[in-house]
Design a binder for these strands. Structure first.
Length: 275
DNA sequence: ATGGTTGTCAAACAA
């Protein structure tokens, strides 16, 4: 029996102060698997009861005090949870969950949830250690041996998260003006493409909104009115293994969430798969 | 060209 699985990703920028709009996002998107980034909450302070009340009994956490942090919630049970550390810094920037037979799935379904370093303001690794860290993080992703090739071909895998890079010209409000702005510089975009080629990973959001059209998931807080000239970027992504891409049925970028009370600067993105 | 805002945790720092 095929079933629909909706996977949602959202950089929530503090999970504890946004439980109300988290509830609204869940009501709108009805995800089966919800991946958050920038939870800014250590694991022993996580609002587990509130998440369970939203309909997610299965919770996988990788948090730290004050900043970063990722979390993945599920309506269906996990067969496995895995966390990876990058750049030997102890940062909480990745968690993966796998759903299997316990969740009623014949083919295991793995979801990687990433929070890639933002990279600071100056796009020069010699002058800016945060940009150097971002590039080193991407180099580790490129070198990441996920699965043997044969297993990779059969597995259903999703990679979501705030990747902090807008690769296409239409992923930013002005390609020309952002070429020297961290998130859209050629050196980052080139590394992202190399990482994408290792899967290979399929940019499934662009199966629903063609690459010729602008598509954003983030609008800066530093603008008095985010709607005024739509100066956004697509920093949040949903990638799939080639085997899973044809199973994608729908995609939503919940733009309205940017206007909710006390919003995150990112909005949720959801993709529904028939598996 | 510059500065603009938000969150953590209580002074800077990160985004």
């Amino acid at each position: 029996m095929p079933q629909n699985l909706t996977v949602c990703t959202w950089n929530i920028n503090s999970v504890r102060i946004r439980l109300d709009i988290l509830r609204d996002a869940v009501a709108r998107l009805q995800p089966d698997i919800l991946c958050l980034q920038e939870t800014k909450c250590q694991d022993d302070r996580f609002p587990l009861a509130a998440i369970r009340d939203l309909g997610f009994p299965h919770i996988a956490l990788n948090g730290q005090k004050g900043w970063h942090g990722v979390a993945t919630f599920s309506r269906l049970p996990f067969a496995a949870i895995e966390k990876r550390e990058f750049c030997g810094k102890g940062d909480a920037r990745h968690i993966a969950v796998t759903l299997g037979a316990e969740a009623g799935l014949a083919t295991p379904f793995t979801v990687h949830n990433f929070y890639v370093p933002a990279g600071g303001d100056i796009p020069d690794p010699d002058l800016n250690p945060k940009f150097a860290h971002k590039l080193a993080f991407l180099d580790e992703l490129i070198a990441w041996e996920r699965l043997p090739e044969q297993a990779r071909a059969q597995a259903h895998t999703v990679l979501v998260g705030d990747l902090n890079i807008a690769p296409l010209e239409t992923d930013v409000w002005s390609h020309k003006q952002l070429l020297t702005v961290v998130s859209h510089t050629p050196v980052e975009v080139e590394r992202m493409r190399r990482f994408q080629a290792t899967g290979p990973w399929v940019d499934v959001m662009r199966h629903f909104v063609p690459p010729e059209e602008k598509l954003f998931t983030w609008w800066s807080y530093r603008s008095p009115d985010w709607t005024a000239n739509d100066r956004g970027r697509r920093l949040d992504h949903v990638w799939t293994s080639p085997s899973l891409a044809p199973h994608a049925r729908a995609m939503t970028v919940l733009r309205e969430a940017r206007s909710w009370e006390r919003p995150s600067d990112h909005v949720p993105v959801a993709v529904t798969f028939e598996v």
